[in-house]
């Protein structure tokens, strides 16, 4: 908030806690994402990354805490509501229908309609195809034929289509959960390039990844969760791999310290 006086941050999570019965999944997490920013969210398995993102997209409701979108408090009852507000999630398991074309997937669930003889409501196939082509071009994703079926694409191409799909409709924030986990090395670079292209188009990105080299290469800021608490929030230019790994494994900055920081 301080760094940009004229505008509130795009997304601000304040004091988010989530309890599942006696289990504390998240404890008083604060998080800010600004426009045109790639934020890497890292942490060991079970550190709370996915839970935090599910709260942000409305899949879970926080036990305590609030979410501010562009300075206004918001309540997302479902992922559908957060999507309408401009927050898109790219799922790890590639939520695409292989039997449909690239264009059909990009517009799935929001196909534009044109009326035929004033009677039938048909899909506007031209707009779907042209829109898809323009979108892929804008993100510099090199796929020649938007009519090709998704099942005939490589893993990296599919991931790129999934990202393009997430950003097709004025997304302000795109959350990516392990976008590079299942990819060949050659394809990882393409996906990371797409992340940077998103930022260049004014979209903010939260990148969840186990691959530290990916996070280090594209993130502007890196946030580390440890046992449900935020233990580090670092500018990439002022940190290094060793420091981040130390935070992830808990040898630097304990959860208790983090609580002290958050309260102070």
């Amino acid at each position: 908030m301080m760094e940009n006086a004229s505008q509130p941050p795009l997304i601000e999570l304040r004091g988010i806690s989530k309890y599942f019965g006696p289990v504390r999944a998240l404890e008083n997490v604060n998080l800010v994402v600004n426009r045109r920013q790639v934020v890497g969210l890292v942490g060991d398995n079970g550190a709370g990354k996915s839970t935090l993102m599910k709260i942000l997209t409305g899949a879970y409701q926080p036990t305590f805490g609030e979410i501010l979108l562009e300075g206004r408090p918001v309540h997302f009852a479902s992922p559908h509501e957060s999507r309408l507000a401009g927050i898109e999630m790219v799922y790890q398991d590639l939520a695409l229908a292989g039997n449909l074309s690239i264009a059909a997937n990009i517009y799935l669930g929001r196909e534009p309609i044109k009326r035929q003889w004033g009677l039938f409501r048909f899909m506007d196939e031209k707009r779907i195809e042209n829109g898809s082509r323009e979108l892929l071009e804008r993100l510099k994703i090199n796929i020649p034929n938007v009519k090709a079926r998704v099942e005939n694409l490589s893993g990296g191409q599919r991931q790129s289509v999934a990202i393009a799909r997430a950003t097709a409709f004025n997304a302000k924030l795109v959350i990516m959960d392990e976008p590079t986990a299942a990819l060949a090395v050659k394809e990882v670079a393409k996906v990371l390039e797409t992340v940077l292209n998103l930022r260049a188009h004014g979209v903010a990105v939260i990148l969840i990844s186990h691959r530290m080299q990916d996070v280090m290469s594209v993130a502007d800021r890196i946030i580390v969760l440890y046992e449900g608490a935020k233990v580090a929030d670092l500018e990439r230019s002022k940190t290094n791999l060793d420091e981040i790994v130390a935070y992830i494994v808990g040898s630097k900055g304990s959860a208790a310290q983090a609580r002290a920081v958050a309260e102070g």
Partner: peptide
């Protein structure tokens, strides 16, 4: 019609797409 195909192709994807 397209949503019927989508449900058959990948019900998860259809669900995530708001279908």
């Amino acid at each position: 019609g397209r949503h019927i195909y989508a449900v058959g192709g990948n019900p998860q994807a259809a669900l995530y797409s708001g279908i």
